[in-house]
């Protein structure tokens, strides 16, 4: 379901995007955390957008993930089209995560709880994705 698209120059200004991708390969979805002002922010970057500190380290967010909005794209270069994408809010993280959602669009609702998941996209890379959390008792 995925097609190779290469890994072009990401204009990764400070190496943190590449580290993010490397950590994903280990099934670790980690973003950057400011050791000075303790803000956890996405996307990962080496410069805290709140206090300008460069003392940042990677941290796996622990907050609940919920679906803020979702749509379907008919021109997905990496995945089979159409493909579902959504904006995910994670408690305690500054910044929302635009992510593939692993579910048919008909089964999604704004505000629903999500579970983190990973998808093998070939070329040695795993990417993060989210899917609806199992309902309680299921």
């Amino acid at each position: 379901m995925t097609q190779p698209m290469g890994w072009p120059d990401w204009r990764d200004v400070d190496g943190r995007m590449l580290e993010f991708l490397e950590r994903l390969k280990e099934r670790e979805f980690a973003t950057t955390f400011c050791d000075d002002c303790e803000t956890c922010f996405f996307p990962p970057q080496g410069f805290c957008p709140e206090c300008f500190s460069e003392k940042v380290s990677f941290k796996e967010p622990e907050g609940k993930a919920t679906l803020y909005a979702f749509t379907q794209i008919d021109r997905s270069f990496r995945f089979a089209a159409p493909d579902v994408i959504g904006v995910v809010e994670i408690e305690g993280v500054r910044g929302r995560v635009l992510s593939r959602i692993d579910a048919p669009i008909e089964e999604l609702e704004i505000g629903m709880d999500l579970t983190l998941d990973f998808i093998d996209v070939g070329e040695g890379y795993l990417l993060h994705q989210f899917r609806p959390a199992m309902p309680a008792g299921a």
Partner: peptide, 22 residues
């Protein structure tokens, strides 16, 4: 770039779709 493109999302339309849906 950078993180959005991990998925090959390269037009503005899906962003506006998310806004319209909400």
């Amino acid at each position: 770039l950078p993180h959005d493109c991990l998925y090959g999302l390269m037009t503005a339309t899906p962003y506006y779709a998310l806004s319209m849906q909400r």
